[in-house]
Amino acid sequence: MSIRFEKVNYIYQQATPFEHQALYDITLTIPTGSYTAIVGHTGSGKSTLLQHLNGLLKPVSGRIIIGDQEITSLTKNKELGTLRKHVGVVFQFPEAQLFEETVLKDIAFAPKNFGSSEQEALETARQMAKLVDLPEYVFNKSPFELSGGQMRRVAIAGVLAMKPEVLVLDEPTAGLDPKGRIEIMDMFQNLKIQQHLTIILVTHQMDDVARYADNVIVLEKGHLLANNFPEKIFSDSKWLQEHHLALPQATRFAKELQKRADSFNFSKVPLTEEELAIQLIQRINEVKQNDE
């Protein structure tokens, strides 16, 4: 399901003294099946943009086309039901949305809202709980008795239970420990491959952008600054610096290496330590051959 923004503007508390514009003329495309990262500082308009993806906010002007649905300022809330089913959103600290008596019931909440029977919904919930690696013994426990990491998984399963085609993730690993972080990010990667999801990731972690994304959107103060492949975005370190954006660690390391020795010339910007290692070995072998 592809997503297209056309000249989207959004203004909070319009026509009051507290009026404040959060998005300016945003035009962009998020292709079907892509892993798109949205980056930018606090206040750049990331979360406002995110809330447009499933109709929680409607543009003040311009339009958004998601699949075969168009959203403008005139779209009625009633027409947004199917959209919300197709676009699942995992908000920041999603465990704050848990409320049911048991883990399974909570996961079954969304499918029930979208018309599944109790039986069907619980069956879906069971599948989703397994999908996010929750151990079976917690299925009928209260979600509030679980550890932070497990609560996070329950909340994610609760969104996956709608079987969305697009999955929007707002800082999904915030507050987790390193192991939990890697597990959750790998889980999304697997889901994307198995279920052909389109993933949209809002994050500050440039290493995650470098490792997982194939499309990057950069926002600054409500304006679209760039929309390109990660290799392109991270190749211009001067531009990134001007906009106070960090480089992925591997790219930064490669930069420093290049500064020290001209022999380290990278044909392609390395984004992860694996890519960097492979390129380094090529370099080393070339130097070796030249010497011989």
Binding site: L56, F91, A96, F109, A110, N113, M162
Partner: peptide, 18 residues
């Protein structure tokens, strides 16, 4: 917080005020 939770539940198919 209220707004955040309302948004999260709306995204799970709840219609508030309808």
């Amino acid at each position: 917080e209220t707004e955040k939770i309302m948004n999260a539940q709306r995204a799970r198919g709840v219609n508030f005020g309808e």
